[in-house]
Design a protein around this nucleic acid. Sequence first.
DNA 1: CGACGGGACGC
DNA 2: CGACGGGACGC
Length: 529
Amino acid sequence: MASPEAHGDFDVDVDRDQGRDPDNDNDDDGFGGPYRNFNRDDPPNSRLFLMVNKATKYRQLWDLFEQFGEIQDIRVLKDRDTQESKGLAYVKFSKASQACRAMEELNGKKLRDGKPMKILIAQSRTSHTNRDLEDAELTRIFVMIPKNFTENDLTSNFEEFGEIEYCNVLRDKSTGESKGYGYVRFMRPSQAALAIENSDRRFRAILAEPKYRLNPNPQGDWHQPPESMHANFGYDPCFQGVPPIFKNMGPKTLPLPHFDDFGCHPGPPLSNLTSDDSLDFSRWLSVTMDPCITREQLTALFGLIPGLDFCDAQKDVINSCRLGYVRYNNPASAIYAKEKLNQFEYPPGSPMMIHFAKDVEAATSGENPLRLMALQLVTAQVMAEVSSHFTDRAQPGRGQMVQPQMMQSTQQTRHANGDFETSFTTARLPPKQPLAPMNTPMKERLFVVCSSSAPPPPEALTNAFCRFGNLIEIYMLPSKSYGYAKYADESSAKAAIEALHGQEVCGVRLKVLPADPPKEEARKRKHTV
DNA sequence: CGACGGGACGC
DNA sequence: CGACGGGACGC
C-alpha cells in the first residue's frame, strides 16, 4: 500500500488526503472524506502510538518498523504553527500481530542518541477512554470450545502461536461440566494476536476483557449464551481428536509397522478363510478423505471391521486432502470395509473415497468368489454395530446431531456400470475451493432459505457454497430456517446462486438469493458520530 | 515524556 | 413463504 516513496520527502505530518484526486475515491476503507478516521484502527490494535525524540523523521521510522510487517501508514505529528515535530508518531500496520511484535521489540530502544522511545498500542478514536492498554489486556484470549475440550486440548491447539502461560476451561461449579468457553494466556501480546488472526475460526478467538471490567447484566446475573451456540461443535469432526461419532468405536491405537512391511501382521487367524499370499495386496486400502480426519479417527472407524492391523493418515500436499492407508489381516475384511464405508460422508458433505491400494478392484468386484466369501464372513452383527453408531445419537439432548441426516440425506445415482455415486446434494458442483480468509472484505452477500426448519449441518453448507471460490462464511441464524453466505467476489456469489438455488443439500431444498443490505449497518452508518 | 487539521445523517 | 448470529472468569 503506502511506501516511503509515496510520500516523497515528507518527513513530518503525513496526511493521506494530500495529493489525492478528490473525484477518485478509491479508498478501500469504505468511508469517504471525514469518515476515514473511523477505519484507522482496523483491525483493532494494529496501530502504534510512539513517543520519540523530536528529531525522528518519517523515513527513519519507516526503515525501523518495516521489518515487522506491512506498514500501512506512518504519521509524525507536528505543531500546526511552528511545523516543529511534537515527538509523537503513529505507525499503522495491517495486522495487530505485526504492531505488537514491533512494540515488543522496539519499546524502550533508543533512536540514534536520543531518549528511549516509548511505544503503546494507539488508543482508538472510538474507545471513549484514555487509558492505555496494558500487556495483561493483550495477552489473554477468549475462545469457544467443544464441551469435552480440556486444558490440554486448548494447549495443543494454541501452542503453535507462542508460549502459553496457562489455559482455562470454564466449568459449571456443581456439575463440573464445561461451559464451552476457555481462556488462553500467552506470554506476549503478539502471540495472542497471532492466535486471534490464525487459529481455527470456529474458536472465535478474541481478546479477553480483563475480569475486573466485566459487568453483570441488569438482572445481576452473568449472561449465559444460548445452547444453540454450541451446535457447531456438536457436529464438528475437525475439531479435536475423537468426535462423538467415533467415541468408543474400535481400537484407539494400533502398532505402526514400518512402511515397507507388507508381510502379514500377526493377528487372530480367520478360520474359514485362508489367506492367499497372491492376493495379499488386496488387504490394503487407500482412503481419500477430508483433511480434518486424523489417524486416530480413521483407526476408530476402520477398526469397526475386525482384522485391522495398520492404519495411517498423511497429508496429500498436492491435492490438499488427506490420504489414509488401511490394512487388514485378511482380504475379506478389506473388501467388506470398502463395501460398507466407501462414500461415507465425514464430515457431512465430504464423502471418503476408498480404493484398494493396488488396482485390484476389478478382480474383487462383481461375482468374485472372494468377495462373496467376505460378505458371508463378516456377519450381520458387525454391520448392525456399524449402523447403530450412526443412528443411536439422534436421541437424548443431542437432537441436532448429524448422523441420521448424514445417512439419509445422500443422493444415490446408479451408473451404467453398476457403481453407485453418492452425493449430499442434487446440485452439480465444481470441486471444493478454499475459503477466503476471515478478514477479506465482503463483496456480495446471499440470503439462504431452507425448506425445512432444520437446516443442513454447517459443514455440508460450507462444502456446497465454497465451490465457487471466495466464500468467506456461511451461517444459519440459530433456530431459524435462513442464513447468509458471504463472498469476497461477486462472480463467485453469482455462480453460487446459479448452481444452488432450488437445489437440495442434505435433503433440504434451498433458496439462494442476493441478500438485502443489512438493516443494522445502514442504521449504524447513519448515526455514526 | 503523551494523542491524531475540523467536521459529523438528512427526511 | 423467508431478512439479519453467538461470548466471559467464585476471591
